[in-house]
């Protein structure tokens, strides 16, 4: 058996994927030092991985030894992944309707390590854009969407999730305080809010969404980047509308006998 087929090759693959993940939501180019910081890998290793990703069409390099930016291969595999996810087809028209009604952005998210990854994203026609997209990663404990997701997890899954957040270096005292507040809100109203916890100018409200007979936990949010919007609008109008949207999505999935991944 060749050496390239052993544990080392798994490590190489994982590290290569870490380099791609380093771009997060960035459409801007990253230099080798940015990539070293994001992955914790030495320069020579990052250079080889990035070179390989350029050769394969996942990254582009502005010029020799220049900065790297994402290339079209990431779109190809992302599109193939999206085609699998049947819930986006059900959720998108419903989320677009909420986005239009309040002229805000709405999203459906799933857990990805210590983040939520957007599976669907809609915006109202004149939304002051948050510059997010399908595939955007937002930190779980700092967002209403992430906290609504954690609320709906089983005790074991919740413990594992919090352990991942702890290992990522978060201040667990602060995390617990945010979660306690969010859980109390959801217990009382069904939704929770974020008032600039992640980015100071972003207000959002989120609801949990559970499908597949309780096996798949997701969340919906509705947010806006706008000053001077009153919290009561979120509490009295948008939160309840999101609850209805979540119920519609879950019911439609059940009626059509759809699972999270398309058959």
């Amino acid at each position: 058996m060749q050496k390239a087929d052993g544990q080392d090759s798994i490590v190489s693959l994982e590290r290569g994927l870490e380099v791609l993940r380093a771009f997060h939501n960035e459409s801007t180019a990253l230099g080798i030092h940015d990539l070293m910081r994001a992955t914790g890998l030495p320069k020579a290793t990052v250079a080889r991985l990035a070179h390989t990703l350029v050769t394969l069409g996942y990254l582009e390099q502005t010029h020799f030894q220049g900065r790297y930016h994402l290339a079209d291969r990431v779109i190809d595999i992302g599109n193939a992944a999206l085609a699998n996810i049947s819930i986006t087809r059900v959720a998108t028209p419903i989320l677009q309707e909420v986005a239009d009604r309040f002229n805000m952005s709405t999203a459906l998210g799933a857990a990805d390590r210590t983040d939520m990854v957007y599976l669907a994203y809609c915006r109202g026609k004149d939304t002051v854009t948050l510059r997010l997209q399908v595939g955007a990663l937002v930190p779980m404990h700092l967002t209403a969407m992430g906290r609504a997701h954690i609320w709906a997890l089983s005790p074991e899954a919740r413990a594992a999730c919090l352990e991942r957040i702890r290992r990522s270096g978060a201040d667990m005292g602060a995390v617990q305080a945010l979660l306690d507040e969010a859980f109390a809100e959801i217990d009382a109203t069904g939704f929770c809010m974020s008032r600039g916890d992640w980015r100071p100018d972003i207000y959002a409200v989120a609801v949990p969404l559970v499908i597949n007979d309780g096996q798949t936990v997701l969340a919906l949010n509705c947010g806006v980047s706008r000053h001077g919007l009153s919290a009561s609008t979120f509490r009295e109008e948008i939160g309840p509308a999101l609850l209805v949207a979540a119920r519609n999505i879950a019911n439609t999935m059940a009626d059509l006998k759809l699972k999270f991944f398309a058959a």
């Binding site: 990431v74 990854v117 997010l132 399908v134």
Partner: peptide, 18 residues
């Protein structure tokens, strides 16, 4: 197997934004 949601974290948002 099918592709999982983690694939979307591999730079999709950064590229599709353009």
């Amino acid at each position: 197997y099918c592709l999982g949601t983690g694939v979307l974290a591999l730079g999709y948002a950064g590229r599709v934004g353009n």
